[in-house]
Design a protein around this nucleic acid. Structure first.
Lengths: 258, 258
DNA sequence: CGGAATTTTGAGCCGGATCAAAAGTAGTGG
DNA sequence: CCACTACTTTTGATCCGGCTCAAAATTCCG
């Protein structure tokens, strides 16, 4: 609860200002727990060092703080190091649509390259840290590192593929299928990051989930209630336990949504 | 029905196998009318020649023919040279979702990089020709051509941005807004390609449009009927005339879809 | 001209939105 | 530590946009 806990662990950490702590140690990719999923995943040690020199550490964002605003000039992409964020995109006059949730190791801002401006606003859902990767330097570096370039292509392609999944979900799935798919997807993302796929804490509100899935808050709440009655999941606030993964997967993939 | 028909048109064409006709002239990027929108748009003449050597011409696809199937190994991307195509993606057991329409100069298959397999099946909506661009060679070439690399990034980023637009459309817009947005978008794409933004012929069926927009065919037909009554568009089969662009745009952007 | 695919039109129904309000949670400051 | 306020979540009642089913009208092609 108190910040002192971490400080007690040793004098070394006390000497460091928050957000700049150990720029030579903790903030390096080499020692980052998410390296195996992140952009530089396939780099050799030497290239990794090079890569490290271009990324910039940012002071942590607190809950609700903006990483960047929709339309602001594109300067680079960000890799999530800890915490989670959401992307909101608004259309002329219209309301905001939540288009992405970002977890550690994921790349934020790739959709800004084309028009040299970010396609949506990105906001921290909880205290979060990100690594800033200036795009021009990344591009230059990728010229000499085919592996890095390939990974960048793969990241973009992956996001396109996930967008397609989302389009399918929004176009043809029922509320039940959408929420089931959402839980399965989150579960999977936690699993990949070494956390339990059965028990996790969501950092977003029901309203966020509804906005993301194209459903009203009330519907999210009702469907979740139904899932609990059916023994598929147990939810206490934002704490989620998946009780029957198989059935949940089946619900998410049921034929003929609508 | 008989293949002889095409042969009758003249001796010159008889000397050339279909799909290989004039590989040195018509099929070159330099003489391609879509160069200003296509991948190599910013290349100098020398680089353009280089680029030309890696692209492969394909025999034209006839209406309904498959360019590639979902899940088949990713080998490269395709630039549409003439005609139009649609991408269909299916989920385990579920029905197919139409996720993209492709017009000349657009790049097909970018979403296949990540998993080394194409994310959806792509089918010609009419007789169409495409340029095949093997990805490994494109990647190698992009190493030496920063401009080409930048354009490739931009293409991918653009597709991501368009996917976001689609997600917003599917998540929050009414049937009227969806169809209005669709017409505006098609109009814009025709305009960019040098055709009239007010009068054009759609190559897809109402069912395709419905599938793409997340609507039943009947709804597409009804809304279109309403648009005609209101004097926004005139439609004769697949021939579309936009009569009141401004109002149509306004309908597409109305606040609070649902 | 004839058969198939496409498009339109009509009637009825349902999933999920909306509106309204209660119940629960989390920060905040005294 | 507790009371206060704001936010979040749940629950209930009602309504409507768009889906479904059914069938006619039209267009497309050979």
């Amino acid at each position: 609860m108190s910040r002192d806990d971490s400080d007690k662990s040793g004098k070394a950490s006390m000497a460091m200002a928050p957000g700049q702590c150990s720029p030579l140690e903790e903030s390096r990719c080499q020692s980052c727990g998410h390296r195996s999923l992140c952009l530089p995943l396939a780099l050799g040690l030497e290239d990794l060092d090079q890569f490290d020199t271009i990324i910039r550490r940012r002071p942590p964002l607190r809950k609700g703080e903006l990483l960047f605003r929709q339309g602001s000039p594109f300067t680079g992409v960000y890799a999530v190091r800890s915490g989670s964020l959401k992307q909101l995109t608004a259309e002329g006059g219209g309301e905001e649509q939540l288009t992405h949730f970002y977890l550690p190791s994921e790349l934020v801002g790739l959709d800004g390259i084309d028009e040299a401006a970010y396609a949506g606003s990105v906001i921290a859902l909880e205290t979060s840290t990100v690594c800033e990767i200036p795009f021009d330097r990344l591009d230059t570096l990728s010229e000499r590192m085919p592996v890095l370039r390939a990974q960048l292509y793969r990241c973009m392609s992956k996001e396109m593929r996930e967008d397609l999944r989302m389009i399918r979900l929004l176009s043809h799935k029922t509320a039940d299928q959408r929420l089931a798919t959402f839980f399965i997807s989150m579960s999977d993302r936690f699993r990949r990051r070494g956390y339990s796929p059965y028990t996790f804490r969501l950092s977003m509100t029901r309203a966020d989930i509804g906005n993301y899935l194209g459903l009203a808050v009330e519907t999210v709440s009702r469907v979740l209630g139904r899932f609990q009655q059916q023994g598929l999941v147990a939810a206490a606030g934002r704490e989620i336990h998946i009780l029957d993964m198989d059935v949940l997967i089946a619900v998410g993939e049921e034929k003929g949504g609508r």
